[in-house]
Write a protein that binds this DNA or RNA. Structure first.
Length: 336
DNA sequence: GCCAAAATAT
DNA sequence: CATATTTTGG
């Protein structure tokens, strides 16, 4: 299995989107459109809203800046969005506007609350775990080790703007379940490899219904082995270091933004390269954010293999806004 | 109406 | 933080 290690991850990299598919745009700023994209979930006043701990550190999302006034339409048909053309279709100010890098924008957003609905009542759009985002998640868990792989830490390591601790916790829950399932199956059967998937295809895990998302990313071998306390620190290729020396290449930071799945489904069966929709229209360039966190986040995002691998960045999938739904999805932005 | 995914509650 | 339950989207 050792050989497989290098093998699976090699293939894994191959499946990544090529640089060409990466973000062609270089826009910046958010437009009101995106704001519009926000949604307000149904009238469910009964919830207490997020009472829980949002104590996350600072990075998280939720933020403060309330984006402009995005109304919400549920399923209706808002239509809208101009994104038809590749022009700039930018947009995207969900709840993670982060810092105030854009003076005017953020200022506006932040203080914009002045007449608009405060973010208080707004509910954040559903996060869509794209394969890329999930991959980052898996990498983070792998780096941290099962022991430290807790929502808060994972979230920090991932450094994805817009991602909340809760998002991670929820996903982690499912991921654990997935691993469990896989263990059961692989254990009895024989071996084969639980670590399938990844590179090329998915795998046949227990059943066809294999969790689509999870199957798309390789599962570190250690995760499947219940008994193996010592080999926890499996250090994958993604460096965790802070990378002090930033060259002039564009590191990309992942950002969660809202998207409309209607136009672009998360991914149904894709194993090759997703990221680039037929139209390839990435929508909101958005800005990245500030990452001044003491925590050691994983590399901004460039995993390049010295031997062959080229460095691809993870990119996200996005959708145009035209429909009525709004979801959160991940988006890479170049910022450094 | 069912199922999966994500959110929210405990 | 983990797990259970509810909501939401497909």
């Amino acid at each position: 299995m050792r050989e497989e290690d290098s093998n699976w991850f090699s293939r894994w990299e191959e499946e990544l989107p090529s640089p060409e598919e990466l973000m062609p745009l270089s826009q910046t700023l958010i437009t009101p459109d995106l704001a519009l994209a926000f949604d307000i979930r149904n009238p469910n006043p009964n919830n207490s809203n997020n009472n829980n701990n949002n104590t996350n550190i600072s990075n998280n999302n939720n933020n403060n800046n309330s984006p402009t006034h995005y109304h919400h339409q549920q399923t209706g048909s808002v239509a809208v969005n101009p994104l038809g053309n590749t022009t700039t279709s930018a947009s995207t100010p969900p709840p993670q506007p982060n810092s105030a890098e854009f003076g005017a924008d953020s200022a506006d957003l932040g203080s914009g609350a002045a007449g608009e609905e405060p973010a208080r009542t707004l509910k954040r759009p559903r996060l869509v775990w794209t394969p890329q985002l999930h991959k980052r998640f898996v990498d983070a868990v792998a780096h941290l080790g099962i022991k430290n792989a807790v929502p808060k830490t994972i979230m920090q390591l991932m450094s994805v703007d817009g991602l909340t601790r809760e998002n991670v916790a929820s996903h982690l829950q499912k991921y654990r379940l997935y691993l469990k399932r896989m263990q059961g199956v692989s254990a009895g059967g024989g071996g084969s490899g639980p670590a399938n998937g990844a590179g090329g295809l998915a795998a046949a895990s227990a059943d066809p219904a294999t969790d689509h998302l999870f199957a798309s990313s390789p599962v570190p071998p250690h995760f499947l082995h219940p008994g193996r306390p010592n080999s926890d620190h499996f250090l994958p290729f993604v460096q965790v270091a802070a990378l002090p020396h930033h060259h002039h290449h564009h590191p990309q930071q992942m950002v969660a933004t809202v998207a409309h799945p209607q136009l672009q489904p998360p991914f149904h069966r894709q194993v090759g390269h997703f990221g680039s929709p037929p139209n390839g229209q990435f929508e909101h360039p958005f800005l990245s954010t500030r990452q001044s966190q003491p925590v050691h986040r994983m590399a901004p995002l460039h995993n390049q293999g010295p031997g062959g691998g080229g460095g691809y960045g993870e990119d996200l999938e996005l959708a145009n806004g035209a429909g009525g739904r709004k979801v959160l999805t991940l988006f890479p932005t170049g910022d450094d």
